[in-house]
């Protein structure tokens, strides 16, 4: 067994691009999935049953199917349903956003519900409107509870971006696997792939631990 680790160095630009693409996907997905999650949460909490039901169905659906299936489905089926041709990148992004916004919806809903009902009463007793109560009292307190969970979701999302490699989006996994098949340097490339993910993921995991400690709510 002869190992040639120079293959990693030779392809450093491609790998760096792949890593960057992973980060871009993570950031873009979160950027879209947070607002969408908030909308879904408010729909679920609203007075109108139809909105609440719609939101609940969306969330239950996307939380209970594997992401890789959503990726495949988006890639193969969306072009059949809509006569628009999306790039693999867009398709992958759409799949990720659908999945993560469903998780975020639950996170936000739980966060809002976790604020004691007495707080709402206290705000209403002062003569505040429901909107003012939500804005001044509930949301600031819910935000504290939501942040640690969002941090965990972020770290999961970072790992899940690897799944869009199956539709040839040029993030880290895809790039590394491509180089592997072209160079036949299997062990080196796969190990390099793992190590690069580790180098990016480890600090993020530690950061999310810090966020959890800092925003720990002790009732």
């Amino acid at each position: 067994m002869t190992l040639d680790w120079s293959i990693v160095w030779l392809n450093k630009e491609a790998l760096a691009e792949g890593a960057l693409m992973t980060i871009v996907l993570t950031v873009l997905t979160m950027g879209l999935a947070v607002p969408l999650g908030i909308v879904l949460a408010f729909m679920r909490l609203s007075k109108w049953r139809s909105l609440a039901l719609l939101s609940q169905c969306f969330v239950e659906l996307f939380r209970n199917i594997p992401l890789i299936l959503i990726v495949y489905w988006s890639f193969y089926v969306i072009p059949i349903l809509i006569p628009v041709q999306f790039s693999a990148f867009t398709t992958g992004l759409v799949a990720l956003v659908l999945c993560v916004s469903a998780y975020n919806a639950e996170t936000f809903r739980a966060g809002i519900n976790s604020v004691r009902h007495g707080q709402t009463n206290a705000g209403l007793a002062l003569g505040m409107s429901q909107f003012q109560v939500m804005k001044e009292i509930i949301l600031p307190q819910a935000a504290r509870r939501v942040l640690p969970i969002l941090a965990t979701t972020w770290v999961s999302l970072f790992k899940d971006t690897s799944l869009v490699s199956v539709i040839a989006v040029g993030e880290l996994s895809h790039v590394a696997l491509q180089i592997r098949s072209q160079s036949f340097r299997v062990l080196e490339m796969l190990t390099a792939m793992a190590v690069i993910y580790w180098m990016m993921g480890y600090p993020q995991a530690k950061l999310s631990d810090w966020v959890r400690k800092k925003f720990e709510v002790k009732e």
Partner: peptide
């Protein structure tokens, strides 16, 4: 912490392709 940082896809592929080598 390592498993928190690496996607399961990477672990699957590594076990299947790299361990035999």
């Amino acid at each position: 912490d390592t498993m928190r940082s690496i996607p399961v896809l990477v672990v699957i592929v590594w076990i299947y392709f790299a361990v035999p080598i």
